[in-house]
Simulated assay, not measured.
Amino acid sequence: MSGRLLVATPRLVDPHFHRTVVLLLDHGPDGALGVVLNRILPVAVDSVLPGWQEVTSSPGGLFQGGPVGLDGAIGVAVGVAVGGGLTTVDPMAGPFGLVDLDSDPDELVGKVDGLRIFAGHAGWSGGQLEEELDERAWFVVDAEPADAYTPEPDTLWRRVLRRQGGELAIVANYPPDISMN
């Protein structure tokens, strides 16, 4: 499932994940790791990682990648250079790669299509994500590269569901509080 999206179903009311879109970066028997793509924080990237603001995709703020490890940062790059000899980016899944945030940010200019910096991440222990999937807490859908650096993260949940068509497109119109439906 690495490289795919976990889209929170309306029944997932945990405030950490309500209406989130998670890019799953790694998934295996020992657990899973991802980043929430649609939770921008009111914090400039440069306030945490000086020099990185100018190379991040618009809107250029820091994103809350999830409730785990909030004192750490993860950089996710998308593009043709991911896995193509760029030493500052480790390929993860498909067009997505992890950025070495100790490197010179200027090394990425013109070499990736998009870049986001996340404070924290979403993590699941072995079997935990599978249990949540069995409980129908998440829809699993294909990611488009631009999902990871969309200029409109606030509308990503609805847009991802709408492009699926059928019943998922209908779910995109659910009110934030499903008891109001």
Rank of each mutant, 00 (worst) to 15 (best):
M1G: 13
M1W: 09
S2T: 13
G3A: 12
R4H: 12
R4E: 13
T9Q: 12
D14R: 11
H16Y: 15
H16C: 10
F17D: 09
H18N: 14
R19V: 13
T20M: 12
L23S: 10
L25P: 07
L25C: 10
G28H: 11
D30K: 10
A32I: 08
A32Q: 07
G34W: 07
V35A: 01
V36L: 08
V36T: 11
N38K: 06
R39D: 07
L41M: 15
P42K: 05
P42T: 11
P42S: 10
V43E: 13
V45P: 01
G51V: 07
W52D: 04
E54S: 15
T56N: 04
T56I: 06
T56F: 02
S57R: 00
G61W: 03
L62N: 04
F63I: 03
F63S: 08
Q64V: 00
P67M: 08
P67S: 05
V76Q: 07
V76A: 02
V76R: 06
V78W: 01
G79P: 12
G79C: 04
V80W: 12
G83C: 08
G85Y: 07
L86E: 12
T87K: 14
T87F: 10
T88F: 02
V89P: 11
V89C: 08
V89H: 09
V89I: 11
D90T: 14
M92H: 04
A93S: 15
A93K: 07
P95V: 13
F96A: 03
V99L: 03
S103E: 09
S103M: 07
D104I: 00
P105M: 02
D106G: 06
E107A: 06
L108F: 02
L108D: 01
K111D: 07
L115P: 01
R116K: 03
I117P: 00
F118P: 05
A122R: 08
Q128W: 02
Q128L: 07
L129A: 06
L129E: 08
L129M: 08
E130T: 13
L133E: 11
L133I: 15
D134A: 14
V140Q: 05
V140G: 06
P145V: 02
P145R: 01
A146M: 00
T150Q: 00
T150V: 04
P151D: 02
P153F: 09
W157P: 05
R159W: 06
R159K: 08
L161W: 01
Q164A: 03
G165N: 01
G166H: 01
E167R: 01
A172P: 02
N173K: 01
Y174T: 08
P176A: 08
D177M: 06
I178S: 12
S179M: 14
S179H: 14
S179W: 14
M180I: 07
